[in-house]
Amino acid sequence: MNIALKCDKITMKFGGLTAVNEFSAEIREHMIFGLIGPNGAGKTTAFNVITGNLKPTSGDVNFFGKSIVGLKPYKIVSMGMARTFQNIRLFSNLTVLENILTGFHHKLQYNIVDTVLRTPRYYKHEKEMRNTARELLKSVGLLDKADLKASGLPYGERREVEIARALATGPKLLLLDEPAAGMNPQETLNLMYFIQEVKESFNLTVFLIEHDMKFVMNLCETIAVLDHGVKIAEGNPEEIQKNPDVIRAYLGDIDA
Protein backbone atom coordinates (compact mmCIF):
# COMPACT_ATOMS: atom_id res chain seq x y z
CA MET A 1 0.00 0.00 0.00
CA ASN A 2 1.14 3.50 -0.77
CA ILE A 3 2.20 6.01 1.83
CA ALA A 4 -0.14 9.00 1.56
CA LEU A 5 1.58 11.26 4.03
CA LYS A 6 4.96 10.98 5.62
CA CYS A 7 6.05 13.38 8.34
CA ASP A 8 9.76 13.23 8.87
CA LYS A 9 10.99 14.75 12.12
CA ILE A 10 8.92 17.90 11.91
CA THR A 11 10.01 20.51 14.42
CA MET A 12 8.18 23.79 14.89
CA LYS A 13 9.62 26.42 17.18
CA PHE A 14 8.02 29.74 18.07
CA GLY A 15 10.82 31.77 19.56
CA GLY A 16 11.97 29.76 22.56
CA LEU A 17 8.92 27.53 22.60
CA THR A 18 9.05 24.20 20.81
CA ALA A 19 5.46 23.43 19.87
CA VAL A 20 6.24 20.28 17.90
CA ASN A 21 9.45 18.35 18.41
CA GLU A 22 10.68 15.89 15.76
CA PHE A 23 7.25 14.51 14.99
CA SER A 24 7.34 11.60 12.57
CA ALA A 25 4.47 9.55 11.24
CA GLU A 26 3.52 7.52 8.20
CA ILE A 27 -0.03 7.43 7.05
CA ARG A 28 -0.91 4.73 4.57
CA GLU A 29 -3.47 5.27 1.86
CA HIS A 30 -7.14 4.55 2.75
CA MET A 31 -6.63 4.48 6.47
CA ILE A 32 -8.10 6.64 9.19
CA PHE A 33 -5.28 7.96 11.32
CA GLY A 34 -5.90 9.72 14.60
CA LEU A 35 -3.70 12.15 16.47
CA ILE A 36 -4.56 12.70 20.11
CA GLY A 37 -3.03 14.46 23.03
CA PRO A 38 -3.87 16.78 25.89
CA ASN A 39 -4.63 20.45 25.35
CA GLY A 40 -1.65 22.38 24.09
CA ALA A 41 0.18 19.25 22.99
CA GLY A 42 0.87 20.73 19.56
CA LYS A 43 -1.71 18.85 17.51
CA THR A 44 -3.11 21.82 15.63
CA THR A 45 0.40 23.17 15.07
CA ALA A 46 1.36 19.87 13.49
CA PHE A 47 -1.73 20.19 11.28
CA ASN A 48 -0.83 23.67 10.24
CA VAL A 49 2.65 22.55 9.29
CA ILE A 50 1.27 19.74 7.17
CA THR A 51 -1.23 21.99 5.37
CA GLY A 52 1.46 24.58 4.66
CA ASN A 53 0.01 27.32 6.89
CA LEU A 54 3.20 27.16 8.91
CA LYS A 55 6.68 26.50 7.63
CA PRO A 56 8.46 23.99 9.90
CA THR A 57 11.71 25.00 11.61
CA SER A 58 13.13 21.71 10.43
CA GLY A 59 11.92 18.40 9.06
CA ASP A 60 10.09 17.37 5.94
CA VAL A 61 6.54 16.62 4.90
CA ASN A 62 6.05 14.19 2.06
CA PHE A 63 2.72 13.96 0.28
CA PHE A 64 2.46 10.99 -2.07
CA GLY A 65 6.20 11.02 -2.54
CA LYS A 66 6.60 14.76 -3.05
CA SER A 67 8.00 17.17 -0.51
CA ILE A 68 5.48 19.93 0.17
CA VAL A 69 7.43 21.99 2.67
CA GLY A 70 7.46 25.64 1.64
CA LEU A 71 4.58 25.34 -0.81
CA LYS A 72 1.70 27.78 -0.44
CA PRO A 73 -1.34 26.26 1.30
CA TYR A 74 -3.58 26.75 -1.72
CA LYS A 75 -1.03 24.88 -3.88
CA ILE A 76 -1.07 21.97 -1.46
CA VAL A 77 -4.88 21.94 -1.66
CA SER A 78 -4.70 21.61 -5.41
CA MET A 79 -2.36 18.64 -4.96
CA GLY A 80 -5.14 16.83 -3.12
CA MET A 81 -5.04 17.70 0.53
CA ALA A 82 -8.09 19.25 2.18
CA ARG A 83 -8.83 20.22 5.74
CA THR A 84 -11.52 21.36 8.14
CA PHE A 85 -11.15 23.54 11.20
CA GLN A 86 -11.57 22.98 14.89
CA ASN A 87 -14.21 25.71 15.14
CA ILE A 88 -16.34 25.33 12.05
CA ARG A 89 -15.38 27.93 9.49
CA LEU A 90 -17.99 28.05 6.78
CA PHE A 91 -18.49 31.11 4.62
CA SER A 92 -21.46 32.15 6.66
CA ASN A 93 -22.98 34.61 4.18
CA LEU A 94 -22.86 32.17 1.27
CA THR A 95 -25.40 29.45 0.67
CA VAL A 96 -24.53 25.80 1.22
CA LEU A 97 -24.23 25.33 -2.53
CA GLU A 98 -21.94 28.35 -2.89
CA ASN A 99 -19.79 27.06 -0.06
CA ILE A 100 -19.35 23.82 -1.98
CA LEU A 101 -18.62 25.71 -5.20
CA THR A 102 -15.65 27.52 -3.65
CA GLY A 103 -14.01 24.11 -3.40
CA PHE A 104 -13.79 23.97 -7.20
CA HIS A 105 -11.93 27.25 -7.36
CA HIS A 106 -8.45 25.81 -7.77
CA LYS A 107 -9.45 23.93 -10.89
CA LEU A 108 -11.49 26.75 -12.36
CA GLN A 109 -11.69 26.46 -16.14
CA TYR A 110 -12.78 29.94 -17.11
CA ASN A 111 -10.95 33.21 -16.59
CA ILE A 112 -11.87 36.77 -15.71
CA VAL A 113 -12.47 37.72 -19.35
CA ASP A 114 -14.95 34.87 -19.74
CA THR A 115 -16.64 36.10 -16.59
CA VAL A 116 -17.06 39.66 -17.78
CA LEU A 117 -18.06 38.75 -21.34
CA ARG A 118 -20.20 35.82 -20.21
CA THR A 119 -18.72 33.59 -22.93
CA PRO A 120 -20.13 30.12 -23.71
CA ARG A 121 -17.16 28.74 -21.81
CA TYR A 122 -18.32 30.57 -18.70
CA TYR A 123 -21.85 29.21 -18.96
CA LYS A 124 -20.64 25.71 -19.71
CA HIS A 125 -18.28 25.44 -16.76
CA GLU A 126 -20.52 27.31 -14.36
CA LYS A 127 -23.28 24.83 -15.15
CA GLU A 128 -20.92 21.90 -14.81
CA MET A 129 -19.69 23.12 -11.46
CA ARG A 130 -23.21 23.62 -10.16
CA ASN A 131 -24.22 20.13 -11.27
CA THR A 132 -21.16 18.58 -9.67
CA ALA A 133 -21.82 20.50 -6.47
CA ARG A 134 -25.41 19.28 -6.39
CA GLU A 135 -24.30 15.71 -6.95
CA LEU A 136 -21.83 16.03 -4.12
CA LEU A 137 -24.51 17.43 -1.82
CA LYS A 138 -26.84 14.63 -2.86
CA SER A 139 -24.26 11.99 -2.10
CA VAL A 140 -23.80 13.33 1.42
CA GLY A 141 -27.52 13.81 1.91
CA LEU A 142 -27.54 17.60 2.09
CA LEU A 143 -29.18 18.47 -1.23
CA ASP A 144 -32.32 19.86 0.38
CA LYS A 145 -30.19 22.45 2.19
CA ALA A 146 -28.42 23.67 -0.97
CA ASP A 147 -29.97 27.13 -1.09
CA LEU A 148 -29.94 27.87 2.62
CA LYS A 149 -27.44 30.29 4.10
CA ALA A 150 -24.65 28.39 5.81
CA SER A 151 -25.07 30.41 8.99
CA GLY A 152 -28.67 29.21 9.31
CA LEU A 153 -27.87 25.49 9.68
CA PRO A 154 -27.76 23.54 12.94
CA TYR A 155 -24.33 22.76 14.34
CA GLY A 156 -24.11 19.13 13.30
CA GLU A 157 -25.07 19.89 9.72
CA ARG A 158 -22.62 22.73 9.52
CA ARG A 159 -19.83 20.29 10.29
CA GLU A 160 -21.10 18.02 7.53
CA VAL A 161 -21.22 20.89 5.08
CA GLU A 162 -17.67 21.81 6.03
CA ILE A 163 -16.52 18.27 5.30
CA ALA A 164 -18.47 18.24 2.05
CA ARG A 165 -16.86 21.53 1.10
CA ALA A 166 -13.44 20.01 1.75
CA LEU A 167 -14.46 17.07 -0.43
CA ALA A 168 -15.27 19.46 -3.26
CA THR A 169 -11.60 20.27 -3.65
CA GLY A 170 -11.14 16.67 -4.76
CA PRO A 171 -8.82 15.50 -1.99
CA LYS A 172 -6.90 12.29 -1.62
CA LEU A 173 -6.15 13.11 1.99
CA LEU A 174 -8.66 14.76 4.32
CA LEU A 175 -7.47 16.39 7.52
CA LEU A 176 -10.11 16.91 10.19
CA ASP A 177 -9.32 19.15 13.15
CA GLU A 178 -11.43 18.01 16.11
CA PRO A 179 -14.52 17.24 14.04
CA ALA A 180 -16.60 16.18 17.04
CA ALA A 181 -15.83 19.20 19.17
CA GLY A 182 -18.95 20.74 20.66
CA MET A 183 -21.28 17.95 19.56
CA ASN A 184 -23.72 15.97 21.67
CA PRO A 185 -23.39 12.14 21.74
CA GLN A 186 -26.05 11.66 19.07
CA GLU A 187 -24.44 14.17 16.72
CA THR A 188 -21.05 12.58 17.38
CA LEU A 189 -22.38 9.19 16.45
CA ASN A 190 -23.91 10.55 13.25
CA LEU A 191 -20.63 12.22 12.39
CA MET A 192 -18.76 8.97 12.87
CA TYR A 193 -20.97 7.18 10.35
CA PHE A 194 -20.73 10.19 8.06
CA ILE A 195 -16.92 10.12 8.06
CA GLN A 196 -16.80 6.39 7.48
CA GLU A 197 -19.28 6.64 4.63
CA VAL A 198 -17.46 9.50 3.03
CA LYS A 199 -14.14 7.78 3.34
CA GLU A 200 -15.47 4.75 1.50
CA SER A 201 -17.37 6.53 -1.23
CA PHE A 202 -14.66 9.08 -1.98
CA ASN A 203 -11.79 6.66 -1.58
CA LEU A 204 -10.05 8.85 0.98
CA THR A 205 -7.29 8.77 3.49
CA VAL A 206 -8.33 10.54 6.68
CA PHE A 207 -6.10 12.14 9.26
CA LEU A 208 -7.91 13.54 12.25
CA ILE A 209 -7.18 15.25 15.52
CA GLU A 210 -9.62 14.56 18.28
CA HIS A 211 -10.26 15.02 21.95
CA ASP A 212 -13.17 12.63 22.25
CA MET A 213 -11.51 9.29 23.11
CA LYS A 214 -14.50 7.13 22.29
CA PHE A 215 -14.77 8.74 18.89
CA VAL A 216 -11.11 8.14 18.07
CA MET A 217 -11.01 4.61 19.44
CA ASN A 218 -14.03 3.57 17.39
CA LEU A 219 -13.02 5.27 14.18
CA CYS A 220 -9.25 5.13 13.78
CA GLU A 221 -7.10 2.24 12.76
CA THR A 222 -3.89 3.81 13.99
CA ILE A 223 -3.49 6.43 16.66
CA ALA A 224 -0.52 8.59 17.57
CA VAL A 225 -0.25 10.45 20.86
CA LEU A 226 1.40 13.80 21.20
CA ASP A 227 2.44 15.33 24.52
CA HIS A 228 4.33 18.59 24.83
CA GLY A 229 5.14 18.40 21.16
CA VAL A 230 6.69 14.96 21.36
CA LYS A 231 5.16 11.76 20.03
CA ILE A 232 4.99 9.40 22.98
CA ALA A 233 3.13 6.50 21.46
CA GLU A 234 1.69 5.05 18.27
CA GLY A 235 -0.36 1.96 17.69
CA ASN A 236 -3.86 0.55 17.31
CA PRO A 237 -6.58 1.65 19.74
CA GLU A 238 -6.03 -1.22 22.16
CA GLU A 239 -2.31 -0.63 22.42
CA ILE A 240 -2.84 3.03 23.02
CA GLN A 241 -5.40 2.46 25.74
CA LYS A 242 -2.94 0.29 27.65
CA ASN A 243 0.13 2.45 27.16
CA PRO A 244 1.29 3.78 30.56
CA ASP A 245 2.91 6.86 29.02
CA VAL A 246 -0.39 7.83 27.44
CA ILE A 247 -2.26 7.36 30.68
CA ARG A 248 0.29 9.50 32.47
CA ALA A 249 0.05 12.23 29.86
CA TYR A 250 -3.70 12.38 30.18
CA LEU A 251 -4.09 11.90 33.92
CA GLY A 252 -0.90 13.52 35.13
CA ASP A 253 2.03 11.89 36.83
CA ILE A 254 0.37 9.86 39.60
CA ASP A 255 3.63 8.86 41.25
CA ALA A 256 4.79 12.37 41.81
Partner: peptide, 20 residues
Protein backbone atom coordinates in the same frame (compact mmCIF):
# COMPACT_ATOMS: atom_id res chain seq x y z
CA UNK B 1 -16.57 31.92 -9.11
CA UNK B 2 -14.38 35.01 -8.67
CA UNK B 3 -17.12 36.75 -6.72
CA UNK B 4 -17.72 33.69 -4.58
CA UNK B 5 -14.00 33.54 -3.84
CA UNK B 6 -14.05 37.26 -2.91
CA UNK B 7 -16.94 36.69 -0.53
CA UNK B 8 -15.15 33.63 0.84
CA UNK B 9 -12.12 35.79 1.60
CA UNK B 10 -14.41 38.27 3.35
CA UNK B 11 -16.16 35.65 5.46
CA UNK B 12 -13.08 33.65 6.43
CA UNK B 13 -9.71 34.04 4.81
CA UNK B 14 -8.14 30.93 6.39
CA UNK B 15 -11.00 28.79 5.22
CA UNK B 16 -10.70 30.33 1.75
CA UNK B 17 -7.04 29.34 1.63
CA UNK B 18 -8.00 25.85 2.78
CA UNK B 19 -10.34 25.71 -0.23
CA UNK B 20 -7.42 26.19 -2.53
Amino acid sequence: EFGRAMKAVRDDEDAAIAMG
